[in-house]
Amino acid sequence: MTQTVSAAPQVVLLHSQDNVLISVATLAADTWFELEGQGYKLKQTVPLGHKIARIDMSAGTRILRYGAPIGSLYCDVQAGDWVHTHNLKSDYLASHTRNGRARG
């Protein structure tokens, strides 16, 4: 089911409908890469396996990975932003961390 449709050396796009990219290595802040004609510059370090916004998106947008919904944004993000618990929440059960409950 997982099909890499496009890849820069630093990230993969797993499905053509996805609005996030996945890092294939830990990428330092200010890393610049280009995918399908669009340039991205990272504002912060993105660890291996984490998500990066493919486009600008507003709060409430459903995030698609593998072409499937994996939750909704609760704040606006710009292309190249790190997408994680600080801006994305489950549409099912809230996630938890060692420091407490993430937003849900």
């Binding site: 396996g49 990975r65 994996i70």
Partner: peptide, 8 residues
């Protein structure tokens, strides 16, 4: 490890 939600 980069997973944000249960459905992900």
């Amino acid at each position: 490890g980069g997973l944000t939600t249960l459905e992900e």
